[in-house]
Amino acid sequence: MLDFIDFTFLDFLDITLVGVLLYYVYKLLKGTVAINIFIGISIVFLIYKITQALKMEMLSSILEVLVGGGAIAMLIIFHPELRKFLLMLGSANIGSKRSFIKQLKFLKTEINSEVDVDSIVAACLKMSKSKTGALIVIERNNSLDFVKERGDFMNAEVNIPILESIFYKNSPLHDGATIINENIIVATRVVLPLSDKTLPSRFGLRHRAAIGITERTDCICIAVSEETGKISLIKDGEFELFNDKDDLIDIIKAHLN
C-alpha cells in the first residue's frame, strides 16, 4: 500500500508531461472525426492503468489485450495526422536560425485570421471570368517551409492587383502555387506534391496539387480552373466548387478562425 501512495517529483513530472501531450494532441485532432476515437482509446487506457494500480489482474489482463491492439489501430486510424506530424518534423531545418519550437506550429491553439480573404476571393473571381488558372495556398498551423523552398520567395502584402499579376498568363510567376501566410505572399511558382487520388478528367494538375498539399498539411487551397473558370476550395484532401462569392468568403474565414 505504501508503494502505491509513494509519489515523487518524477511522478509529478511524468503526469504533467503526459497531460501536456494529450492536450496538444486533442488540439491537433479537434474538429475531426478522429477526436472521438482518440477520446475512446484514452478512456480505455486510463481504465487499464487504474486496474493495474489496483491489482485487478483479470480485468487488467483483458484491457491489456485491447490496449495492445489499440496501438496498431491508432497507427491505421490516425495515419493522416501522423503523416502530417512526421512530415513536419522531417521538413524542419533544426540547424537554421529559426528555432525548432517555431517549426511546431501545430501546437498553437489559435490561427491568425488576419488574412485579407475578401481581396483573395475578389481576385479569384476576376481570374475566373477571364479563365486565368490560379492556385493559392493559405498557410495555417502546419509549416509549409518544405515546399516554399521549391519556389521563388516573395514578401508582399496580399492585394487584388498583385495576385492578378502573379497569375497573368504571360507572367513568369504564373506556373505553380502562391503561398500566403498571415496576409503576406511568401512564395510564388511553388511546386506542390501531387495526390494519388483518382480525379474526374475535368480536373488537372492544379487540382491534384491542391489535394496533395491539403492531404499532408492543414492548409487551405483555392484553385481557379483555366479550362472552365470554376473556383474550387480544397481542404483536407477534399474539394468543393463555388459560384457564390459570399459563401466562399464565409467558409474560408470560418476555417481560418
Rank of each mutant, 00 (worst) to 15 (best):
L2I: 13
D3E: 13
F7G: 14
F7S: 15
L13S: 11
D14G: 06
T16N: 12
V25I: 15
K27S: 03
L29V: 02
L29Y: 03
G31T: 06
I35M: 14
S42T: 11
Q52S: 03
K55M: 11
M58F: 14
G69S: 04
G70I: 03
G70H: 02
A71G: 01
I72K: 01
I77P: 02
E81K: 11
L82I: 06
K84R: 14
K84C: 04
F85T: 01
L86A: 05
I94R: 07
S99E: 07
T109V: 08
E110C: 09
V117L: 11
K126S: 05
K131Y: 10
L144W: 07
F146C: 11
M154H: 04
N155Y: 08
V158C: 09
I160D: 05
P161N: 08
I162V: 15
F167D: 06
P172I: 03
I180K: 12
I180D: 09
V190T: 13
L192H: 01
P193M: 03
L194N: 07
D196V: 07
L199Y: 02
L199E: 00
R202G: 03
R202I: 04
A210M: 13
R216H: 09
T217A: 06
A223E: 15
E227A: 14
K230G: 09
S232H: 13
S232A: 13
E240H: 11
F242T: 00
D246H: 04
D247G: 07
D247T: 04
L248W: 08
D250K: 15
H255C: 07
